[in-house]
Amino acid sequence: MENYSLPPKPKNSLWKKIKTIVITLLVIGLYVWTFTGIDIEWSRVIERALNNFQRVIPKLLSPDWSATSEVALAMLETVFIAFAGSLMAAILAVPIAFLAANNMMGKYLSVIGKWILSAVRAFPDIILAILFVVAVGPNAFAGVLAIAIGSTGMLGKMFSEIIESIDMDIVEAMQANGANRIQILFYAVMPQIIPEFLSYAIYRFEVDIRASSILGIVGAGGIGTMIIFASNNRNWNEMGTILLAIIIVVTIIDFASARIRRKIV
């Protein structure tokens, strides 16, 4: 009878063991810190929930159809904000992406470009919207600017990664043939990046639809304004209509965008 035993386990070095212990302790420490810091008044939460469930949930599920036209108009404005914002971002992101890609400009410029992009990305959209609402007043254009700047960070990063992944042989071949920088840009770089750029810009439009639907909470236009009014007035029927509108529009745009992107790439 042959002996079917498992192969011996690889021995862990002492260094690895210490590392595992330290990491485990750190994680435990983090959770202890979390659970001691969070203090939820459960009694109040449960009391509120018991009172509100009967009042809120049935109303949410029976949307107020009389508000349909108003909601549709606000949703349309949301789509406009997202569209204008993403298009601006898609244009703004291109030069920054070229700056940040390390195979286009020098190494140092690329580091600067990457820093600019990650700094922009660190601001949540809503915070940008707050700043722009203070600057241009509480209207939809503040939302457009917030979306434009917010998306530039993400799109710039994606674009620069695309540029970094292009086939540089073609660029070299053109250089060897004596093409100047503009010619290289148009005939070697652009054909390689345009489909993916478009694909990411359209994907970003999907994300921006979601983002712009909440900007109204700080006064930057779109359907968010209605959300905040409906919740302040405890008008849960209208909230049901708004939710339905968001779900439908986002689903349609996700679907359409996925189809277009599949065609492009």
Binding site: I38, D39, I40, E41, R44, V45, R48, A49, N52, F53, V56, L60, I126, R210, A211, S213, I214, I217, G224, I227, I228, S231, R234, W236, M239, L243, I246, I247, V250, T251, D254
Partner: peptide, 27 residues
């Protein structure tokens, strides 16, 4: 898919309506 269409802050507004102001609806 339906869950993903609803933005985070809208969920927060809903849960604040249900559970009152505080950390719990946020979490």
């Amino acid at each position: 898919n339906i869950l993903r269409t609803i933005p985070d802050l809208v969920l927060a507004v809903l849960f604040v309506g249900l559970f009152g102001i505080g950390l719990f609806p946020g979490i």
